[in-house]
Nucleic acid binder design. Sequence first.
DNA 1: ACCAATCATTGTTGTCGTCAATAGTTGCCG
DNA 2: CGGCAACTATTGACGACAACAATGATTGGT
Lengths: 141, 141
Amino acid sequence: MRALHADTGYLLYRLGLHSGRLFNATLEEFGLRLRHYALLRYLATVEGALQRELSDRLGYDPSAIVSLVDDLQELGLVERGPAPGDRRSRIVALTDRGKDVLRDTDKGSRRVTDELLAPLTPGERATLQSLLARVAEADRG
Amino acid sequence: MRALHADTGYLLYRLGLHSGRLFNATLEEFGLRLRHYALLRYLATVEGALQRELSDRLGYDPSAIVSLVDDLQELGLVERGPAPGDRRSRIVALTDRGKDVLRDTDKGSRRVTDELLAPLTPGERATLQSLLARVAEADRG
DNA sequence: ACCAATCATTGTTGTCGTCAATAGTTGCCG
DNA sequence: CGGCAACTATTGACGACAACAATGATTGGT
Protein backbone atom coordinates (compact mmCIF):
# COMPACT_ATOMS: atom_id res chain seq x y z
CA MET A 1 0.00 0.00 0.00
CA ARG A 2 1.19 3.50 -0.76
CA ALA A 3 2.11 5.77 2.09
CA LEU A 4 -0.22 8.52 3.19
CA HIS A 5 1.81 11.27 1.64
CA ALA A 6 3.23 9.57 -1.40
CA ASP A 7 1.36 11.88 -3.71
CA THR A 8 2.55 15.43 -4.24
CA GLY A 9 -0.87 16.81 -5.16
CA TYR A 10 -2.42 15.45 -2.01
CA LEU A 11 0.53 16.63 0.02
CA LEU A 12 0.05 20.12 -1.37
CA TYR A 13 -3.56 20.04 -0.33
CA ARG A 14 -2.72 19.02 3.22
CA LEU A 15 0.05 21.57 3.61
CA GLY A 16 -2.15 24.25 2.11
CA LEU A 17 -4.76 23.59 4.76
CA HIS A 18 -2.18 23.74 7.48
CA SER A 19 -0.62 26.89 6.11
CA GLY A 20 -4.05 28.50 5.83
CA ARG A 21 -4.80 27.75 9.46
CA LEU A 22 -1.53 29.35 10.57
CA PHE A 23 -2.24 32.43 8.47
CA ASN A 24 -5.73 32.84 9.79
CA ALA A 25 -4.43 32.61 13.33
CA THR A 26 -2.03 35.51 12.89
CA LEU A 27 -4.52 37.57 10.90
CA GLU A 28 -7.11 37.22 13.61
CA GLU A 29 -5.68 40.08 15.64
CA PHE A 30 -6.29 42.42 12.71
CA GLY A 31 -9.87 41.29 12.32
CA LEU A 32 -9.00 39.81 8.94
CA ARG A 33 -9.10 36.40 7.36
CA LEU A 34 -6.97 34.96 4.64
CA ARG A 35 -9.25 36.05 1.83
CA HIS A 36 -9.06 39.66 3.00
CA TYR A 37 -5.31 39.42 3.10
CA ALA A 38 -5.20 37.96 -0.41
CA LEU A 39 -7.29 40.84 -1.66
CA LEU A 40 -5.20 43.51 0.06
CA ARG A 41 -2.10 41.90 -1.23
CA TYR A 42 -3.29 41.88 -4.80
CA LEU A 43 -4.34 45.51 -4.55
CA ALA A 44 -0.84 46.40 -3.45
CA THR A 45 0.52 45.08 -6.75
CA VAL A 46 -1.76 47.09 -9.02
CA GLU A 47 -2.90 50.33 -7.31
CA GLY A 48 -6.58 50.05 -8.03
CA ALA A 49 -8.59 47.23 -9.55
CA LEU A 50 -12.10 46.55 -10.77
CA GLN A 51 -13.99 44.07 -8.64
CA ARG A 52 -14.32 41.86 -11.66
CA GLU A 53 -10.57 41.83 -12.00
CA LEU A 54 -10.23 40.79 -8.36
CA SER A 55 -12.64 37.96 -8.94
CA ASP A 56 -10.68 36.72 -11.95
CA ARG A 57 -7.23 37.01 -10.44
CA LEU A 58 -7.99 35.65 -7.01
CA GLY A 59 -10.39 32.96 -8.17
CA TYR A 60 -13.19 34.07 -5.86
CA ASP A 61 -16.81 34.40 -6.88
CA PRO A 62 -17.91 38.00 -7.64
CA SER A 63 -20.35 37.81 -4.74
CA ALA A 64 -17.50 36.89 -2.42
CA ILE A 65 -15.57 39.93 -3.61
CA VAL A 66 -18.51 42.14 -2.70
CA SER A 67 -18.60 41.07 0.90
CA LEU A 68 -14.82 41.07 1.25
CA VAL A 69 -14.62 44.63 -0.04
CA ASP A 70 -17.52 45.57 2.22
CA ASP A 71 -15.57 44.29 5.20
CA LEU A 72 -12.35 46.02 4.23
CA GLN A 73 -14.15 49.27 3.50
CA GLU A 74 -15.77 49.18 6.91
CA LEU A 75 -12.32 48.81 8.44
CA GLY A 76 -11.11 51.77 6.37
CA LEU A 77 -8.46 49.74 4.58
CA VAL A 78 -9.94 50.09 1.13
CA GLU A 79 -12.05 52.52 -0.88
CA ARG A 80 -14.55 52.07 -3.68
CA GLY A 81 -14.39 54.76 -6.34
CA PRO A 82 -16.07 55.31 -9.69
CA ALA A 83 -14.50 53.69 -12.72
CA PRO A 84 -13.72 56.24 -15.42
CA GLY A 85 -15.79 55.55 -18.51
CA ASP A 86 -18.00 52.80 -17.07
CA ARG A 87 -20.63 53.52 -14.49
CA ARG A 88 -21.28 49.83 -13.84
CA SER A 89 -17.84 49.20 -12.41
CA ARG A 90 -16.22 50.39 -9.22
CA ILE A 91 -12.53 50.78 -8.67
CA VAL A 92 -11.19 49.39 -5.41
CA ALA A 93 -7.98 50.87 -4.04
CA LEU A 94 -5.94 50.66 -0.84
CA THR A 95 -6.18 53.56 1.59
CA ASP A 96 -3.09 54.77 3.43
CA ARG A 97 -4.35 52.91 6.44
CA GLY A 98 -4.73 49.82 4.29
CA LYS A 99 -1.12 50.06 3.20
CA ASP A 100 -0.01 50.31 6.81
CA VAL A 101 -2.02 47.31 7.86
CA LEU A 102 -0.71 45.35 4.90
CA ARG A 103 2.84 46.04 6.01
CA ASP A 104 2.03 44.81 9.50
CA THR A 105 0.31 41.69 8.27
CA ASP A 106 3.22 41.00 5.99
CA LYS A 107 5.38 40.69 9.06
CA GLY A 108 3.01 38.08 10.43
CA SER A 109 3.02 36.37 7.09
CA ARG A 110 6.78 36.05 7.15
CA ARG A 111 6.66 34.72 10.69
CA VAL A 112 4.21 32.03 9.64
CA THR A 113 6.33 31.07 6.69
CA ASP A 114 9.44 30.84 8.82
CA GLU A 115 7.66 28.57 11.24
CA LEU A 116 6.29 26.43 8.46
CA LEU A 117 9.60 26.03 6.67
CA ALA A 118 11.67 25.58 9.81
CA PRO A 119 12.92 22.12 8.78
CA LEU A 120 14.47 23.47 5.57
CA THR A 121 17.78 25.25 5.02
CA PRO A 122 17.71 28.70 3.37
CA GLY A 123 18.84 27.21 0.09
CA GLU A 124 16.10 24.60 0.19
CA ARG A 125 13.53 27.27 0.94
CA ALA A 126 14.59 29.18 -2.14
CA THR A 127 14.32 26.03 -4.23
CA LEU A 128 10.87 25.30 -2.88
CA GLN A 129 9.73 28.85 -3.48
CA SER A 130 10.91 28.76 -7.06
CA LEU A 131 9.32 25.38 -7.84
CA LEU A 132 6.00 26.38 -6.32
CA ALA A 133 6.03 29.70 -8.15
CA ARG A 134 6.42 27.90 -11.46
CA VAL A 135 3.59 25.52 -10.69
CA ALA A 136 1.39 28.43 -9.65
CA GLU A 137 2.20 30.42 -12.72
CA ALA A 138 1.21 27.59 -15.03
CA ASP A 139 -2.47 27.54 -14.21
CA ARG A 140 -3.17 31.21 -13.67
CA GLY A 141 -2.16 33.98 -16.04
CA MET B 1 5.59 46.49 -2.81
CA ARG B 2 6.06 42.74 -2.63
CA ALA B 3 4.69 40.59 -5.36
CA LEU B 4 1.54 38.60 -4.80
CA HIS B 5 3.29 35.30 -4.51
CA ALA B 6 6.52 36.33 -2.87
CA ASP B 7 5.69 34.38 0.25
CA THR B 8 6.06 30.62 0.30
CA GLY B 9 3.49 30.08 3.03
CA TYR B 10 0.87 32.02 1.13
CA LEU B 11 1.81 30.29 -2.08
CA LEU B 12 1.32 26.94 -0.38
CA TYR B 13 -2.12 28.00 0.71
CA ARG B 14 -3.12 29.05 -2.81
CA LEU B 15 -1.76 25.91 -4.44
CA GLY B 16 -3.38 23.77 -1.78
CA LEU B 17 -6.76 25.26 -2.62
CA HIS B 18 -6.21 24.66 -6.29
CA SER B 19 -5.02 21.13 -5.75
CA GLY B 20 -8.02 20.43 -3.53
CA ARG B 21 -10.42 21.60 -6.21
CA LEU B 22 -8.80 19.31 -8.78
CA PHE B 23 -9.01 16.37 -6.39
CA ASN B 24 -12.64 16.93 -5.59
CA ALA B 25 -13.45 17.07 -9.27
CA THR B 26 -11.97 13.64 -9.95
CA LEU B 27 -13.41 12.13 -6.78
CA GLU B 28 -16.89 13.27 -7.69
CA GLU B 29 -17.49 10.29 -9.97
CA PHE B 30 -16.98 7.96 -7.00
CA GLY B 31 -19.41 9.91 -4.84
CA LEU B 32 -16.56 10.90 -2.57
CA ARG B 33 -14.98 14.14 -1.46
CA LEU B 34 -11.44 14.85 -0.41
CA ARG B 35 -12.11 14.18 3.24
CA HIS B 36 -13.38 10.71 2.45
CA TYR B 37 -10.33 10.06 0.36
CA ALA B 38 -8.02 11.25 3.12
CA LEU B 39 -9.71 8.89 5.53
CA LEU B 40 -9.56 5.89 3.19
CA ARG B 41 -5.96 6.64 2.48
CA TYR B 42 -5.01 6.75 6.12
CA LEU B 43 -6.82 3.49 6.75
CA ALA B 44 -4.76 1.88 4.02
CA THR B 45 -1.59 2.62 5.96
CA VAL B 46 -2.68 1.09 9.27
CA GLU B 47 -5.25 -1.69 8.72
CA GLY B 48 -7.80 -0.56 11.27
CA ALA B 49 -7.95 2.57 13.38
CA LEU B 50 -10.00 3.96 16.24
CA GLN B 51 -12.12 6.92 15.28
CA ARG B 52 -10.28 8.96 17.84
CA GLU B 53 -7.04 8.13 16.09
CA LEU B 54 -8.49 9.25 12.76
CA SER B 55 -9.50 12.53 14.31
CA ASP B 56 -6.01 13.12 15.68
CA ARG B 57 -4.08 12.12 12.59
CA LEU B 58 -6.24 13.80 9.99
CA GLY B 59 -6.98 16.88 12.04
CA TYR B 60 -10.75 16.60 11.70
CA ASP B 61 -13.21 17.07 14.52
CA PRO B 62 -14.51 13.81 16.04
CA SER B 63 -18.01 14.71 14.90
CA ALA B 64 -16.73 15.09 11.35
CA ILE B 65 -15.20 11.61 11.56
CA VAL B 66 -18.56 10.19 12.55
CA SER B 67 -20.32 11.46 9.47
CA LEU B 68 -17.44 10.60 7.15
CA VAL B 69 -17.37 7.03 8.42
CA ASP B 70 -21.17 6.92 8.14
CA ASP B 71 -20.91 7.88 4.48
CA LEU B 72 -18.15 5.39 3.74
CA GLN B 73 -19.95 2.61 5.57
CA GLU B 74 -23.09 3.28 3.56
CA LEU B 75 -21.03 2.93 0.40
CA GLY B 76 -19.61 -0.34 1.71
CA LEU B 77 -16.02 0.88 1.65
CA VAL B 78 -15.44 0.69 5.37
CA GLU B 79 -16.62 -1.29 8.39
CA ARG B 80 -17.03 -0.44 12.05
CA GLY B 81 -16.04 -3.23 14.42
CA PRO B 82 -15.70 -3.55 18.18
CA ALA B 83 -12.43 -2.52 19.75
CA PRO B 84 -10.88 -5.34 21.78
CA GLY B 85 -10.70 -4.36 25.42
CA ASP B 86 -12.64 -1.09 25.24
CA ARG B 87 -16.33 -1.07 24.56
CA ARG B 88 -16.39 2.71 24.08
CA SER B 89 -14.28 2.61 20.95
CA ARG B 90 -15.00 1.27 17.49
CA ILE B 91 -12.40 0.08 15.05
CA VAL B 92 -12.77 1.28 11.48
CA ALA B 93 -11.25 -0.82 8.72
CA LEU B 94 -11.30 -0.92 4.93
CA THR B 95 -13.46 -3.54 3.25
CA ASP B 96 -12.23 -5.34 0.14
CA ARG B 97 -14.47 -3.06 -1.87
CA GLY B 98 -12.89 -0.10 -0.10
CA LYS B 99 -9.44 -1.26 -1.12
CA ASP B 100 -10.56 -1.58 -4.73
CA VAL B 101 -12.06 1.88 -4.77
CA LEU B 102 -8.96 3.29 -3.17
CA ARG B 103 -6.84 1.81 -5.94
CA ASP B 104 -9.10 3.40 -8.54
CA THR B 105 -9.10 6.79 -6.86
CA ASP B 106 -5.34 6.60 -6.58
CA LYS B 107 -5.20 6.54 -10.35
CA GLY B 108 -7.23 9.75 -10.43
CA SER B 109 -4.97 11.18 -7.79
CA ARG B 110 -1.91 10.55 -9.92
CA ARG B 111 -3.62 12.11 -12.92
CA VAL B 112 -4.35 15.25 -10.92
CA THR B 113 -0.80 15.43 -9.68
CA ASP B 114 0.58 15.03 -13.19
CA GLU B 115 -1.61 17.84 -14.41
CA LEU B 116 -0.64 20.05 -11.52
CA LEU B 117 3.08 19.47 -11.85
CA ALA B 118 3.14 19.63 -15.64
CA PRO B 119 5.59 22.56 -15.71
CA LEU B 120 8.24 20.62 -13.76
CA THR B 121 10.73 18.03 -14.95
CA PRO B 122 10.69 14.59 -13.30
CA GLY B 123 13.77 15.52 -11.28
CA GLU B 124 12.18 18.72 -10.07
CA ARG B 125 9.04 16.85 -9.10
CA ALA B 126 11.08 14.50 -6.97
CA THR B 127 12.79 17.45 -5.31
CA LEU B 128 9.49 19.14 -4.61
CA GLN B 129 8.01 15.95 -3.21
CA SER B 130 10.93 15.48 -0.87
CA LEU B 131 10.93 19.06 0.39
CA LEU B 132 7.18 19.06 1.00
CA ALA B 133 7.36 15.73 2.75
CA ARG B 134 9.94 17.09 5.17
CA VAL B 135 7.84 20.16 5.88
CA ALA B 136 4.78 17.99 6.44
CA GLU B 137 6.62 15.62 8.72
CA ALA B 138 7.79 18.44 10.97
CA ASP B 139 4.40 19.46 12.29
CA ARG B 140 2.65 16.14 12.56
CA GLY B 141 4.06 13.18 14.39
C1' DA C 1 -33.07 51.98 -30.86
C1' DC C 2 -33.01 47.44 -29.66
C1' DC C 3 -30.64 43.19 -27.75
C1' DA C 4 -27.04 40.65 -25.84
C1' DA C 5 -23.30 41.02 -22.76
C1' DT C 6 -21.19 42.88 -18.62
C1' DC C 7 -20.68 44.63 -13.70
C1' DA C 8 -21.91 44.78 -9.03
C1' DT C 9 -25.06 43.12 -5.91
C1' DT C 10 -28.46 40.14 -3.25
C1' DG C 11 -30.24 35.87 -1.88
C1' DT C 12 -30.14 30.84 -1.50
C1' DT C 13 -28.36 26.40 -0.67
C1' DG C 14 -25.19 22.99 0.85
C1' DT C 15 -20.83 22.18 3.17
C1' DC C 16 -17.53 22.84 6.79
C1' DG C 17 -15.45 23.99 11.26
C1' DT C 18 -16.24 24.69 15.99
C1' DC C 19 -18.35 24.10 20.10
C1' DA C 20 -21.49 22.38 23.64
C1' DA C 21 -24.11 18.49 25.41
C1' DT C 22 -25.10 13.50 26.07
C1' DA C 23 -24.75 8.40 26.91
C1' DG C 24 -21.96 4.77 27.68
C1' DT C 25 -17.56 3.10 29.45
C1' DT C 26 -13.11 3.03 31.66
C1' DG C 27 -9.48 3.78 35.07
C1' DC C 28 -8.03 5.78 39.13
C1' DC C 29 -7.86 6.65 43.92
C1' DG C 30 -9.48 6.75 48.11
C1' DC D 1 -15.45 -1.79 46.43
C1' DG D 2 -17.49 2.72 45.34
C1' DG D 3 -17.48 6.95 43.29
C1' DC D 4 -15.54 10.40 40.43
C1' DA D 5 -12.86 12.18 36.66
C1' DA D 6 -11.53 11.26 32.02
C1' DC D 7 -12.40 9.38 27.64
C1' DT D 8 -15.21 7.40 23.39
C1' DA D 9 -18.52 8.08 19.95
C1' DT D 10 -22.40 10.56 18.84
C1' DT D 11 -25.93 14.34 18.13
C1' DG D 12 -27.23 18.97 17.61
C1' DA D 13 -26.60 23.99 16.98
C1' DC D 14 -24.44 28.03 15.05
C1' DG D 15 -21.58 30.83 12.17
C1' DA D 16 -18.37 31.03 8.22
C1' DC D 17 -17.74 30.07 3.63
C1' DA D 18 -18.22 28.41 -1.50
C1' DA D 19 -20.94 27.82 -5.49
C1' DC D 20 -24.87 29.12 -8.02
C1' DA D 21 -28.93 31.55 -9.79
C1' DA D 22 -31.35 35.88 -10.27
C1' DT D 23 -31.71 41.05 -10.48
C1' DG D 24 -30.79 45.99 -11.74
C1' DA D 25 -28.07 49.15 -13.89
C1' DT D 26 -25.23 50.05 -17.74
C1' DT D 27 -22.69 49.28 -21.90
C1' DG D 28 -21.52 48.11 -26.80
C1' DG D 29 -22.75 46.43 -31.09
C1' DT D 30 -25.51 46.46 -35.16
